[in-house]
Design a protein around this nucleic acid. Structure first.
Lengths: 342, 342
DNA sequence: CAGCGACATGACAACGTCGACATATTTTTC
DNA sequence: GAAAAATATGTCGACGTTGTCATGTCGCTG
């Protein structure tokens, strides 16, 4: 492999001068710089990060540790956000996923340390509280899409499920809906509770009573092997004589089944029944016809902001409040119209 | 940071002996080994990969270079397959995605080289031919889900779209369907052509004529911003008086729209119209009701096999034929039944 | 018991890079 | 025009690890 020394020889300078050129240090004549750069190009020299790291003990590398993220379609955008930030800022990304195993997680931390990683981004597939082994490890860490159960001070970034659900609910109310159904996400998920809470609070503030709402559980059980009641719940909800004019779905994926249930009953969307989702999982929300109105989980931004925050942290700047929350933007598409006869 | 030297001091041996223990080399007394291991535990020593690499010039790291994979839900399983293999075999994964940009791709290759990566896995989101810059780079590379346009000898691994579509077609024929519709994938995608070809050939072999088939284009245009005709195509196909009894969908995602089109026309699935997808994109195929019968793209295996093959390659073993193909398994669910009146 | 081989350990250099410091050259300052 | 400052370049060692070779200690063979 061509090293800094071969370049130095080729350019007729000392290796230190080459080092200066590479790192853009001052005190190099323009002429020397050009000669060195030419030698670099001619020889195809590429700096050896390992050697650099060994000297400077800054790896310029972030580690991403995930549970199932790279496994699942949902939150891949978090990773994309992180990578984009890393590219733009000359950082390298080391990625590992645990598949949920504690032993594996311990291994990953070890692996990260053996690579002398500067910091860690701890990412989970769905929003939840976790208890990372970070406690006994002193690598700076930012939690993305989750927060620590044990250490409240660990910086975290999460989507604002509450605000998203609030916006969606208001949107339906503004459109004139007064009888609204809600098909709940798996209550295991942290987002589920927040979204439901926002829905209940917002409708109540608006003056709706419990009789105006129809709430059903759509899924339950351990993530990955949950029981799915969505279709049945939606069908039942829509067969009531006093059926809701709009249904809020726990997420976009569940909305598929609500669509199918509605259509199977001969209802038209949105004329007879309005539907909104959550997440803006575009493979679904844009594949549905009419396309689904939903609230976008800010996954990409979660990743981007997380990486940026980790960097800030590494530079010694402490942030005021540890737990951040990013808004979910309402995406208006075609699945909502005013109720038929209001 | 605690180094091998501190361990050596603590254990009262030379650093070379510690190195022997770490690497499981012979010629160390059991007693010495234990003393060293204790020191390692006590001090929490973790080997420095960078230093190791600089000596041995084997990084034990694979690079994954992707176009949009980490961006899109579809093929994330490829990455998971690679990672699982890497975990099991003590390799580290460096991941970067180009977002389709050539300049970015060049940067990534450079970055990989600067980390002295052992080999590269070149992964694309959808099956296609590419022209990687690998030509001027001498890092061993395995192509996953794609193949090189220019270099036929570059090892590649792809799903067997042809066989998958053939199996699906036969499945429908075996169920008794004799009038079959096909809604085509974006013809830009390499899989599109193969699937259609398999469909046509298989139906022809079975004795169906052109009049028994209804073929329509579902999508077209550049990936990411294509025109979507699926709903219209399906609706039109199903409104013919001599409508097909089964529809093959270019992929699972498109099947959503076919479901909606069918249901909107008052048709029941599968009693009035059978539907099959392709890909087994489970977020969709299992969310649809009835669940979708489809052919599973072997993404996970693509990744696993790819990593394994790269490793074999690195050990100097050349494989006989460069281009491999992995079967797509038929996944039978509830969206197909025999035609109503045959 | 000299000689040999197997085993156990250590000393030291080298990998590629950069920081600290030294030296040489030019420019500025008074 | 001599001293001081700024600029340009080089020497050398250190980072943490492992490969090479040397050394030392056994036990065994003939």
């Amino acid at each position: 492999m061509v090293s800094i020394i071969s370049v130095a020889k080729a350019a007729g300078v000392s290796n230190k001068t080459v080092s200066r050129v590479i790192n853009g240090e001052p005190y190099v004549t323009e002429e020397t710089r050009e000669r060195v750069e030419k030698a670099i190009r001619d020889l195809g020299y590429i700096p050896n990060m390992a050697a650099r790291l060994i000297r400077s003990s800054r790896s310029n590398t972030f580690g991403i540790i995930t549970d199932y993220v790279s496994t699942t379609p949902y939150s891949v955008d978090i990773v994309r956000g992180i990578q984009d930030w890393a590219n733009a800022n000359g950082k390298t990304i080391l990625m590992a996923n645990t598949g949920g195993s504690i032993e594996r997680e311990a291994e990953v931390w070890k692996m990260f340390q053996s690579h002398r990683i500067d910091g860690v981004l701890y990412v989970t597939m769905y929003r939840r509280t976790v208890d990372p082994e970070a406690g006994d490890v002193q690598i700076p860490t930012v939690m993305i899409n989750c927060r620590s159960q044990t250490n409240e001070l660990l910086p975290s970034i999460e989507p604002d499920d509450y605000q998203g659900a609030q916006d969606l609910t208001r949107y339906l109310l503004d459109k004139g809906h007064r009888k609204i159904g809600y098909i709940r996400l798996n209550p295991i998920l942290q987002g589920a509770e927040l979204r439901l809470e926002a829905f209940l609070k917002t409708t109540r503030e608006f003056g709706l009573t419990e009789g105006d709402l129809a709430i059903k559980l759509g899924m339950e059980g351990p993530v990955g092997s949950e029981n799915n009641y969505v279709f049945a719940a939606a069908t039942e909800m829509l067969m009531q004589k006093d059926r809701p004019t709009a249904i809020m779905s726990g997420n976009d994926e569940m909305a598929i089944q609500i669509y199918i249930a509605a259509l199977s009953l001969g209802l038209r969307i949105p004329e007879d029944i309005s539907i909104v989702g959550f997440d803006d999982f575009r493979t679904v929300s844009m594949a549905l016809k009419p396309e689904l109105t939903t609230a976008a989980l800010p996954y990409y931004d979660l990743g981007l902001t997380g990486a940026e925050r980790l960097n800030t942290l590494l530079q010694g700047n402490k942030s005021d409040r540890p737990q951040w929350v990013l808004p979910c933007k309402l995406i208006e598409r075609g699945s909502v119209s005013p109720p038929a006869c209001s």
